[in-house]
Design a binder for these strands. Structure first.
Lengths: 234, 234
DNA sequence: CGAGTCCTTGACCATAATCAAGATATGTGG
DNA sequence: CCACATATCTTGATTATGGTCAAGGACTCG
């Protein structure tokens, strides 16, 4: 486990602790629900490999994707804090997860305070992402939302070595996913995306995304080039 | 300070620690920016009294209110984790804030792990709220969004004794605020709200909100009655 | 009484949703 | 290799929700 990319940056004592807390590794197939809205999970996970998504549904079936989940992400922290999950996490590809019992989270704060700090760091980072998405969905046009979302996903993947420097990225994301993440309909997402392809901003082919003109995309999105912040992990 | 409602539930050692960390109390006027997007704040705050809001803006002036801030809330945690704030916090009424130096947050995790846990609890709770808002803005109609927002605000205020059991609540929130929080225009918010008043769902008069038919509102919002979870504080 | 803020209403328009159907892959078993 | 099934993407036509523009009314405060 120690060799895993996602755990780099931890000291040996922290690694020992993480190892002792770890109750196993879990492998799931695409489309598996790792965590389920409304249900109390006994586990918290760290993603070791694969793509997933976090989502929330209404009783009548409408769903909103809250964000995409990549290696290094911590999911299900809610389970350690509250009675029931208020969102689900689903695998998009096969995923490998590092499993921790929820009951050990409290212990973690006492025994390894610096890991506790790391947990908050993750929570704060996630909140930032949600803030930005909420503004995007609340105040931006379809084209702006798409530009923001693609730049964000690309950036997140880039930081963990899952996308190329030339703007290319293989992601298991369909237009339907993008629509559900941005509060748009599939049809409108498709048309807008087509328009952007026509304008030479990007290419989209069978799960292969290529940002052709990142500068112009950033302009549309009103986003600056993001500094690649260091990642505390687990 | 110990008598403050918001610190109830802490043990004496924790209280001593909080007191030692506290670098002062701050009183701000309405419309003051407590924290500023893009700027690095040296402080983290706990709200002792008053209402505020958390917001994010685009370069061209569009703004999105992320959520409303009430006594007991922790704001500016980002300041302790990252270089610059990515959102602002503004006072709606006069506010009293308990001020902590950001540099002490890391110390907190080492010296008082249970307080560290409380910080994560707050972060997780905030994330839940954001998840729900994002779904609301992304997938709900204007009427649904308003029903959800009002029930949420009422519930949050209720839990800290700021609203009456009969559905009445005095809040310094204008229709413009509601619109900015829900990703709607002022005009449409006004019309929708009027319709809901006409349907006997609520009353809205000069900052005084009254939920007349909470059951029907919950039905529109597809929300259950929320269990009033206990609040760890600071 | 005048200024400012907030609320209300009307007319018109635009973005994006919905409905419906067809086109392109990708994969499966015969 | 082909027939079929499924998932994804594309396109057209129509509608609706909500945005924009503009102006007037109501309330508060000094």
């Amino acid at each position: 486990m120690r060799k895993r990319e996602v755990f780099r940056g931890l000291g040996p004592r922290e690694l020992d602790f993480v190892a002792s807390m770890k109750s196993g590794e879990m492998r799931v197939e695409p489309r598996t629900r790792v965590l389920d809205e409304g249900v109390n999970s006994p586990h918290v996970f760290t993603v070791l490999s694969g793509w997933g998504l976090r989502e929330k549904s209404l009783a009548d079936g409408r769903r909103q994707i809250l964000n995409f989940v990549l290696p290094g992400d911590l999911v299900g922290l809610q389970a350690a804090m509250f009675d029931a999950m208020d969102h689900s996490v689903e695998a998009l590809t096969g995923m490998t997860l590092c499993v921790f019992p929820r009951s050990d989270i409290q212990r973690l704060f006492h025994d390894q305070p610096s890991l506790g700090f790391t947990v908050v760091w993750h929570a704060a980072r996630n909140e930032r992402l949600l803030d930005a998405t909420l503004m995007s969905v609340g105040r931006c046009s379809a084209r702006e939302r798409i530009a923001r979302a693609l730049l964000t996903i690309y950036g997140k993947a880039r930081r963990i070595g899952l996308s190329e420097a030339d703007g290319t990225l293989s992601a298991p994301i369909t237009q339907q996913h993008l629509a559900d993440a941005l509060g748009l309909s599939l049809v409108h997402t498709n048309r807008t995306l087509k328009g952007m392809v026509g304008d030479g901003l990007l290419r989209w082919r069978a799960g292969r995304l290529q940002l052709l003109d990142a500068a112009r995309l950033r302009d549309i999105a009103q986003m600056d080039e993001t500094a690649p912040a260091a990642l505390p992990l687990i």
